[in-house]
Amino acid sequence: MKELFLIICLMKLFHYGMSIDYDGWLNIKIEHTLNCKDGKYCSRGNISLKSIRAGIATIEQTPFTKQHIEQLKEIAEIDGFYTVKTLVTSADNKGTELLSSVKARSFLENGLSDVINAWMLPNGAVTAVNFQVTNSSKALQHNKDGYLINSKFFLRYVEQAPVPDTASYIQKLEREREAREKGELKDNRSFLAKYWMYIVPIAIFVMISGATNPEPAGQAAR
């Protein structure tokens, strides 16, 4: 019996571990609105993870050209936003499009450096991908291919809040109601706990009456 109980416990632990320890590949295609000839968005790069559990990402991004920088400066002059669209695909997800925006001026002043955060549920579903820039000031890095984009990627996990057991609570209230109707549920509260809603108004009325009708002062002795 002990061996059987141990096997059942191990099977439950194994099933629990499998349900929360999700793994698989993940791919995030990055698109933006700069220097796009056809359509509103065009490719900026790609982020790929062979293993979500390992969390090691490979980031490939196309350097900005002079035209990219000029358009970014034009957006920065009107204090506008640089918009990025991501297409998230995985073994269980054919594709989810997500949008994120940063201030164009901040992106320029930070030397085309940003932080990319992908927020994932325990089941492996990505709920958001957001881009951020720090407040540091960096110069643009330029080589023969163009202006380099410096990105850091982080995979964040979202902890789901516990779901209240509403059904059990409703069943409990229903059982208490039926017991009260049958007279099976005794009220063990004190006299004050039962009838406070009647006692408090009377007490307040007595206090107000005493304050508005004080006893007349005795006449002074002659």
Rank of each mutant, 00 (worst) to 15 (best):
Pro162Trp: 10
Ser106Leu: 08
Thr65Asp: 10
Leu6Arg: 10
His142Ala: 05
Ala118Leu: 12
Arg175Lys: 14
Gln71Ala: 11
Leu108Tyr: 14
Val102Glu: 03
Ala217Arg: 14
Asn130His: 14
Ile202Pro: 00
Leu98Asp: 01
Val129Arg: 06
Pro122Thr: 02
Pro201Phe: 15
Val84Phe: 10
Lys2Gly: 13
Ala203Arg: 03
Ala104Gly: 00
Glu181His: 13
Ala128Thr: 00
Pro122Asn: 06
Pro214Ser: 07
Leu108Met: 02
Lys186Leu: 11
Glu184Gln: 13
Pro162Asp: 13
Tyr169Thr: 07
Ser51Ile: 04
Phe131Gln: 06
Met11Leu: 13
Pro162Lys: 06
Glu178Asp: 14
Ser100Tyr: 04
Tyr41Val: 01
Tyr22Val: 07
Thr134Tyr: 13
Ser48Arg: 09
Gln67Met: 11
Pro201Gln: 11
Thr58Asn: 14
Ser113Ala: 15
Gln160Asp: 05
Ala203Ile: 12
Lys172Met: 05
Gln61Lys: 15
Gln171Ser: 10
Ala125Gly: 01
Ala161Leu: 11
His142Asn: 08
Leu173Trp: 12
Val88Gly: 07
Lys172Pro: 00
Val133Trp: 01
Pro122Val: 09
Ser51Leu: 03
Lys85Cys: 03
Glu178Trp: 14
Trp119Ser: 05
Met11His: 03
Lys50Trp: 07
Lys50Tyr: 05
Lys94Asn: 09
Ala220Met: 03
Thr127Met: 13
Asn110Leu: 02
Lys172Leu: 07
Gly39Cys: 10
His68Leu: 02
Ala118Trp: 02
Ser113Cys: 09
Gly80Glu: 10
Lys40Leu: 14
Lys40Gln: 13
Gln132Lys: 14
Glu178Tyr: 11
Ala54Ile: 13
Asn130Glu: 15
Glu109Cys: 02
Asp21Asn: 04
Gly24Trp: 05
Tyr147Leu: 01
Leu173Met: 12
Asn117Ile: 11
Met120Ile: 09
Asp145Lys: 13
His142Phe: 12
Arg180Met: 08
Gly55Val: 09
Val133Gln: 03
Gly124Asp: 08
Leu155Asn: 00
Asn27Met: 06
Lys50Glu: 15
Cys9Glu: 02
Ser51Thr: 07
Arg175Leu: 07
Asp92Ser: 10
Glu159Lys: 10
Met11Lys: 02
Leu98Met: 15
Phe107Lys: 05
Ile20Tyr: 08
Ala91Met: 07
Val158Ala: 07
Glu215Phe: 15
Asn117Lys: 10
Ile47Asn: 10
Met197Leu: 15
Lys29His: 04
Ile75Trp: 05
Ser100Asn: 10
Tyr41Gln: 03
Pro164Asn: 09
Ser106Glu: 11
Glu176Gly: 09
Lys66Leu: 08
Arg177Val: 14
Met1Cys: 04
Phe191Trp: 01
Ser113Phe: 03
Lys73Cys: 08
Lys138Asn: 10
Pro164Glu: 06
Thr166Ala: 05
Leu4Val: 03
Ile116His: 01
Ala118Glu: 00
Ile78Gln: 13
Asp165Gln: 02
Ile202Gln: 09
Pro162Ser: 13
Glu31Pro: 00
